[in-house]
């Protein structure tokens, strides 16, 4: 069964579908890769998170090197 969730942002709520979770040994960080349920937007999205954080906060991956590493990690999992 696919996992979906709502991402509540300052711009509103977006329904998303989980693609996968990733973990970076190098950065010791967890990442969630997901897509919008609305198929007009084909891009993938990634946010970092702390599994211990009960507020379910998803954080921006704003550093371009980090984003590139996550993309490579995702590719390696394919």
């Amino acid at each position: 069964m696919e996992d979906t969730f709502f991402l509540d942002t300052t711009e509103g709520s977006i329904e998303c579908r989980v693609i996968t979770n990733l973990y970076s040994e190098k950065r010791k960080k967890h990442y969630l890769v997901y897509e919008y349920v609305d198929e007009k937007n084909d891009d993938l999205y990634v946010s970092s998170y702390d599994p211990e954080d009960e507020t379910n906060t998803l954080n921006d991956v704003s550093d371009s090197d980090e984003l590139r590493e996550v993309t490579e990690l995702f590719e390696s999992m394919m």
Binding site: D3, F5, F6, L7, D8, N56, T57, L58
Partner: peptide, 19 residues
């Protein structure tokens, strides 16, 4: 397509399983 990033709060009854 690209891989982009977003921030916000995840809301789902399955949040524990997702995260």
């Amino acid at each position: 397509i690209q891989m982009k990033s977003k921030k916000g709060k995840l809301r789902s009854k399955n949040s524990k399983r997702i995260l």
